[in-house]
Design a protein around this nucleic acid. Sequence first.
DNA 1: CGGGATCCAAGTGTGGATCCAC
DNA 2: GTGGATCCACACTTGGATCCCG
Lengths: 227, 227
Amino acid sequence: MNEATAVAAPPASEAELLTRAHAIAGLSLTELSEAFDTPLPADTRSGKGWSGQLLERVLGATAGALAEPDFQALGVEMKTLPLAASGRPRESTYVCTVPLDGSAEPRWEDSWVRRKLARVLWLPVEGDPSIPLPHRRVGTAILWSPEADLEAALRTDWEELMERVVMGEVDELSAHLGSYLQIRPKAADGRALTRGVGHDGAPVLTLPRGFYLRTAFTDEILRRHYL
Amino acid sequence: MNEATAVAAPPASEAELLTRAHAIAGLSLTELSEAFDTPLPADTRSGKGWSGQLLERVLGATAGALAEPDFQALGVEMKTLPLAASGRPRESTYVCTVPLDGSAEPRWEDSWVRRKLARVLWLPVEGDPSIPLPHRRVGTAILWSPEADLEAALRTDWEELMERVVMGEVDELSAHLGSYLQIRPKAADGRALTRGVGHDGAPVLTLPRGFYLRTAFTDEILRRHYL
DNA sequence: CGGGATCCAAGTGTGGATCCAC
DNA sequence: GTGGATCCACACTTGGATCCCG
């Protein structure tokens, strides 16, 4: 494989995608990077998103697509899931940005969060800090849609959180809210600002925020599929 | 002057701005670039906007400001004006992008074009192609607001052009329209696309456009101030 | 000649996430 | 443990304009 073909073709079906994902289970990030012209970052601090981008290439996701599912034709999102030595997720999972500017869809059914999570390929990756990044291995992928009870829980959280947003309480948002879905900063640093709507509809500048899934949520997905 | 101070402080008043601008009249771009840590581009093809950005630094414009006047506190825009050997403007002058997505203000009084041109520091620069870029000299600046007759003409053009835009006739726009103000492509190349509104309000993808002042307009400004 | 095409820089936003002080 | 802070890549947009062929 040369540099010009270092990105896999998009999979034609969910079955093909899952077959490819299962085929790489057990391989290390080094083994995968060698075939895909993707230099290893110096450390995990620089290149936090590196493994996710590598795995997108490996599986044939549409590179750099904008506000589209990773596998556009299939409507499937891909998410890596860093696992601690215990087998539990080590980190929360970013979903999408929070619309703070008044452009939010009013209903859960039409929300960006629901659309993003409608069909997800979860790709577990060893995430124990004692394992150097190049040595970390990929686990067995799960192609998932939210079970009814989990979707109901997400909806409850989303409605609670978005009520705060549309009421203009953006500066009272805290990551303590929400049992499975939470809102946290999503920015280059603490000085980044984006346009939002404050009390009485007044325009305000505020820290950009994102929706994240708590580890309790992704842990539950793993439990249901592996136990 | 070291690298850390290679940008002038913002002028505190229009008088200070004009004093500074007059102080550099007659200097070449090389002379100005040496003090401001701004390497000369290889040619004029690469670096089309280089002289404008150099002169913003020299005069203390807020660097890289977003949708704000160059001299924010003063509400003044700066525009370079490339002059042919004849003394007439060689090129049209870019004003701002055309809102094709339905977000346009309906009235001239509130329009982006009017606000941009409300107060302009015109900075003539030698633009004859026979003069190498580094040797081109800066002329005598003009601090200007539109005279009543010129503003009326701009308004007529703007209303004619925006009527086409709001009627969804984006793909029938042509640079032939408008006596002083025209609409032309404003993009990296002919393949760039942006969201617009077409006939019957249907969303369409179309070439990004900008408002430009024809040379007849800037020539008239020069005539009134120098003759 | 001038309408349509193009060039560069820098900031912003989105998408990929993990870091780290309390 | 985890809420708040941060890191990289890259597409897009805006702001600075001039190029160039019919």
